[in-house]
Design a protein around this nucleic acid. Structure first.
Length: 406
DNA sequence: ACTCCACAGGAATTGAGGGGTG
DNA sequence: CACCCCTCAATTCCTGTGGAGT
């Protein structure tokens, strides 16, 4: 029933997200700076705190893994006591949670600590005890640290643990990785001084750099001669234009390969890249829509309704009235208007809605008008999967049919 | 230049829901 | 059980704002 697939891919692994290449390409300057910043560890000095910033998929995490692997090897060789702790901070929204997660990572699975309940300082103290236990130099990598927002206590606490006498035998060093440039400016001044003593900026890749990275991975992943010549430059161009992210480019290649495979094509061509691009874009939007709360869904329903009757763009006030209607229909408590404004701005932030500021001056004042920024069909498709909304999506769908919009 | 509309969005607070210790 | 902690959506209260009308 299952047979190994041998037409397109020789090995899909190099296209996956967690693939760790043996060499890092196109990041020579950044690596050099990074290596210098880590040098004190090998010299037996206290580690520097390092802050990396740059958008997703520009090599921050890969470079960190690469250098720290080598650092650990070399530390072993020179008899230096080094521990590296990696803590991904996606889905972590506060310093408290970061501390708990670090703590649980250090403790065995049998003595883990609940993620709530303790006073913050208690968690920090437990963490200090564990660090003291480790001793030596401890590098703590906090990936996607911008998730903690303005709540940056942990970034203040950890670097000072030693000078404040919370720990005796350990040199903690923080490596913060952030996707968000503005995160650095949001940090409280006391944190900025210490954490940002060494900053390394990773710029987005340009199309040439992406071509070389994608080319290298593709060589490992695809059979010889499977890729048409224009495929890699096109994938590189798409992702350079959009985000400068290697991750996006790799996803694109992978998806295009899968499409070619399922079409039983013998080569991957330009058209596969183009449809892969469309498909990935759509998947991402649809996933985003699914993840909204019921209230968010209701707001989206409301805007869609106006879209169908072609009165969009529509102002907040009218959306709110419609929303109240729908909330009532599914017997949910209708939220206050202020909250709906938050939901609306969240929806526009995700790119589901576009917002335009209008101002009617003396007799109108200023207000926002929203309209759908995504295909009505896919909005309704997603909404109709959500049972909590009962018959609202169906209603909208049949209304759209009547208007001939689907 | 001034006024005034109608809303945007910041700040502080609440309350329910996860959990802790003694 | 009484009392406390963290989190996050939601509420309350409020100040800020851009430009058409005067």
């Amino acid at each position: 029933m299952f047979t190994p697939d041998e037409n397109i891919f020789s090995d899909e692994y190099p296209l996956r997200e967690n693939y760790q290449p043996e060499q890092i390409q196109e990041r020579d300057n950044e690596l050099k700076k990074y290596r210098n910043a880590l040098q004190p560890v090998i010299n037996g000095a206290p580690p520097k705190n390092i802050f990396l910033y740059g958008k997703t998929g520009v090599g921050k995490t890969v470079a960190t893994n690469y250098l720290l692997d080598h650092l650990q090897e070399d530390a072993g060789e020179y008899g230096i006591d080094l521990t590296v702790i990696k803590q991904p901070c996606n889905n972590i929204s506060s310093s408290y949670q970061v501390a708990v997660n670090l703590l649980n990572q250090l403790r065995g699975p049998d003595s883990r600590v609940s993620t709530t309940g303790y006073p913050q300082q208690d968690v920090f103290n437990m963490l200090y005890d564990e660090l003291d236990e480790l001793g030596g130099t401890v590098l703590i990598v906090l990936d996607e640290i911008d998730n903690i927002g303005g709540n940056d206590d942990i970034l203040y606490e950890l670097p000072r643990a030693e000078s404040n006498g919370y720990v005796d035998d350990v040199w903690p060093g923080i490596i913060g990785i952030s996707n968000d440039f503005t995160f650095r400016d949001q940090l409280s001044p006391k944190v900025k001084d210490t954490l940002c003593e060494e900053e390394i900026h990773f710029p987005p890749y340009d199309a040439n750099e992406l071509t070389s990275i994608l080319g290298d991975r593709a060589e490992k992943a695809f059979h010889d001669g499977v890729l048409n010549d224009e495929v890699i430059p096109l994938a590189a161009a798409f992702s350079a234009q959009d985000s400068g992210s290697a991750r996006q480019g790799l996803r694109l290649l992978h998806k295009a390969g899968e499409l070619a495979r399922s079409n039983e094509a013998s080569t991957v061509e330009e058209k596969h890249i183009r449809s892969a691009q469309k498909e990935l874009e759509r998947d991402q939007l649809e996933d985003g829509m699914r993840e909204l709360t019921t209230q968010g869904h209701l707001v989206l329903c409301s805007v869609s309704a106006f879209e169908i009757t072609e009165v969009a763009p529509v102002r907040t006030q009218e959306i709110y009235e419609r929303y109240q209607n729908y909330a009532d229909r599914i017997s949910a408590d209708a939220l206050g208007e202020r909250r709906i404004r938050d939901h609306l701005s969240e929806l526009s932030l995700h790119g589901f809605l576009t917002v335009a500021e209008r101002n009617d001056g003396f007799h109108g004042g200023s207000y926002y008008e929203y309209e759908l920024n995504v295909d009505l069909g896919s909005v309704l498709a997603v909404l109709s999967e959500i049972s909590r909304l009962e018959d609202i999506p169906e209603m909208l769908e049949s209304a759209a049919d009547r208007e001939g919009l689907t």
